[in-house]
């Protein structure tokens, strides 16, 4: 992934960029913008951490991760955003304990090692669980959900209009591509 994404996420979350709202239904969009404001509860460093994590869990060829993360965080209600923030802080504490540095500054190899040492890859996601279970639920799986409910991720595996993405209903009538 491109390093510019981190900056992009921060900008977007501060309300600076347009969204991918063009594909949302009008009713969803108007309500979402009325009732769920930009996630002001996340700090810049928390956003940086989430983006650093995205660089680990997203495939290397992906170049549009920033937009995915932005869209995902934008519709999270305040209580879930709070849990995302809490999981981010827990992950950061683990990084500081293990490497003496914030998670966002770790190398890819260090991040990968930390996540696996914590057992995030072996943990069952649980919103009320232990630190690795919550990191898995709110962060790793949240990011994977954002990716694989979007064509940016699903097209990597041959699906143009995945479940969870409002890409119109017509695509189901199309035959498979040769």
């Amino acid at each position: 992934m491109e390093l510019t994404r981190r900056r992009a996420v921060t900008t977007i979350l501060a309300g600076g960029l347009g969204t991918s709202a063009g594909v949302w239904s009008l009713s969803t969009l108007s309500e979402a913008t009325e009732e769920s404001e930009a996630p002001s509860e996340l700090t810049d460093s928390e956003l940086e951490l989430i983006e650093s994590l995205a660089e680990i869990v997203y495939p290397s060829e992906l170049s549009t991760g920033a937009v995915l993360v932005e869209s995902y965080l934008r519709y999270q209600p305040p209580d879930r955003l709070r849990e995302i923030r809490n999981a981010s802080r827990s992950l950061d504490i683990s990084a500081r304990r293990r490497y003496g540095a914030p998670f966002a500054t770790l190398t890819a190899s260090e991040s990968e090692t930390l996540l696996r040492e914590m057992g995030v890859d072996r943990a069952a996601p649980d919103r009320d669980g232990t630190v690795p279970e919550r990191v898995r639920h709110y962060l790793v799986n949240g990011l994977l959900y954002a990716l694989f409910t979007d064509p940016a991720g699903s097209r990597l595996v041959g699906i143009d209009n995945p479940r969870g993405y409002p890409g119109g209903y017509e695509s189901y009538a199309e035959p498979p591509r040769e």
């Binding site: 239904s25 009008l26 009713s27 969803t28 995945p162 993405y165 409002p166 209903y169 017509e170 189901y172």
Partner: peptide
């Protein structure tokens, strides 16, 4: 006054678009 189906494909258990 409601949206046409936009293909979220999650009719059961929830239709986010209201179609």
């Amino acid at each position: 006054g409601r949206s046409p189906c936009v293909g979220y494909s999650t009719c059961i258990p929830v239709c986010p678009s209201g179609a």
